[in-house]
Simulated scan of single mutants.
Amino acid sequence: MTGNPARILVWDWAIRLVHWLMVILVPLLWWTAEEGHMEWHKGFGLTMFGMVLFRLIWGCIGTWTARFIPMVQRIGSLPSYLAKLRAQGYHPTFGHSPLAVLSVFALLLALTVQITTGLFSVDVDGLESGPLSVLVSFETGRQFAEIHEFNFNLLAALIGLHITAIAIYRFVLKEKLVRPMLSGRRPSSDFTNEQLPENRIRPIRMIAAIFIALACTLAVANFG
Rank of each mutant, 00 (worst) to 15 (best):
F94E: 00
G62P: 01
H96G: 01
A87E: 02
A208D: 04
T117K: 08
L218K: 11
H41R: 15
P70G: 02
G62A: 02
E149C: 04
G76Q: 08
G160P: 05
F150W: 06
V178T: 06
L173G: 04
G89W: 03
F150P: 10
I69W: 12
L214P: 00
L107Q: 06
N153P: 08
N222G: 08
N4I: 15
P70A: 04
M181T: 03
G62W: 00
R186V: 01
K42I: 12
T217P: 10
F105A: 04
V113R: 05
P70V: 06
I57E: 11
G36K: 15
F191Y: 03
W58P: 06
L218E: 08
V172E: 07
M1Y: 13
M1P: 11
F120H: 06
W31L: 14
I212M: 04
V178H: 14
E35I: 11
E34P: 14
W30R: 12
E149D: 14
A110L: 13
Q195M: 07
Q114A: 07
S189M: 04
L28C: 10
W20M: 09
Q195T: 14
P187E: 08
V26K: 06
D125I: 11
T164N: 11
A209Y: 00
T93Y: 01
V10M: 02
A106H: 13
L107I: 13
W31R: 13
M51G: 14
V23K: 05
A106D: 10
L182I: 13
T65P: 02
F54V: 15
D123W: 03
F152G: 11
L85N: 00
W40G: 15
N193P: 10
P98I: 01
T93R: 00
T63L: 04
G89T: 07
K174H: 14
I201C: 14
L173W: 09
V18I: 07
H148Y: 12
F105M: 03
E146G: 05
I147E: 05
R142D: 04
I166K: 02
D125Q: 12
E198M: 13
I61R: 03
V52L: 10
L28P: 12
I159V: 11
L56G: 08
L25Q: 07
V101P: 06
P5W: 03
I69M: 09
I61H: 02
D123N: 09
